[in-house]
Structure formats: C-alpha cells, structure tokens
Amino acid sequence: MVRHILLVKFTSETSEQDLSQLEQAFYQLKADIPGIEGVEFGANISPEGLDKGYTHAVLMTFVDVKARDAYLPHAKHEAFKAIFVPMIADILVFDYEF
C-alpha cells in the first residue's frame, strides 16, 4: 500500500464553494481510477500553530506503487489537475509505502 499525502495552501481567491467542489472531485477520482483504495480531504484543525500556512490535507491510499504510478499520468487525474492547480498557492507532496 502507498499513502499519497498532499498539504495545500490555497490562493486567496479560492472560495468555500471551490473547496467543496474540489473535495467532491477528489472523491470522484477514487471512483474513476483503479487502484485507489481511499481518499480523505480535510481542513487543518490543529491548535499547535505549526501548519506553516497549509490549510488543508488530502490523504490518498493506493493498493501499491504501480497503482500510484498509473494514477499520476491518468487522463482523469490530468483533467482534475486543470481544476486543482490554479487554486494552489503552495503544496507539499509526500508518499510512503506501508
């Protein structure tokens, strides 16, 4: 299994409606692309103040590295990125196997 973690700072132009639509689009990726076991999307609620400005996280779980690698260039992922990337002020991506 592979965890694919995104920590995101959104642009100031990104609205709550944009975030809601984006969240649903992330969940749709699971339905559209084989090998995605799970998707979670959420806003930071930590009281520690160590978020460095990242406001949201996405956690995707893939069945294996091969599934993650197939997802990255997948046409549905590329179409999704056309919506997502313009909303990003900064992003951190971190994958690990477990």
Rank of each mutant, 00 (worst) to 15 (best):
I33S: 03
D64A: 11
E13Q: 14
K66R: 10
V85M: 15
A67P: 08
D69P: 10
I5C: 13
I91G: 07
Q28D: 14
A70S: 14
G42A: 03
T61H: 11
L6V: 09
S46E: 04
I88G: 05
P73I: 04
L6H: 00
M87K: 07
T55W: 06
Q17K: 15
F94R: 09
E37I: 13
L29H: 01
G53K: 04
K9E: 02
A75R: 10
E37N: 12
E23D: 07
I45M: 12
F98I: 15
R3M: 13
A31R: 12
K66N: 12
S15V: 06
K30F: 05
A75F: 08
K52M: 14
E13N: 14
G35P: 05
I88D: 01
A82Y: 03
A67T: 06
S46G: 07
S46F: 08
Q17F: 11
I88W: 04
E23K: 11
A70C: 10
D90F: 02
F94P: 07
I83K: 09
I36K: 02
K66G: 12
M87S: 04
M1V: 14
P86N: 01
E97G: 10
H56F: 02
T11L: 15
S20L: 14
E97Y: 13
A25L: 12
G42S: 03
I83G: 03
E13P: 12
Y54C: 05
L92H: 11
M60E: 00
R3V: 15
E78K: 11
L92V: 15
F10A: 01
D90I: 02
F62E: 07
V85N: 14
Q21N: 15
I5F: 10
K9A: 03
P73C: 05
L6Q: 01
S12T: 14
F94M: 15
D51Y: 08
Y71W: 05
D95I: 09
E23G: 08
A82T: 06
I33P: 04
G42T: 01
A70F: 10
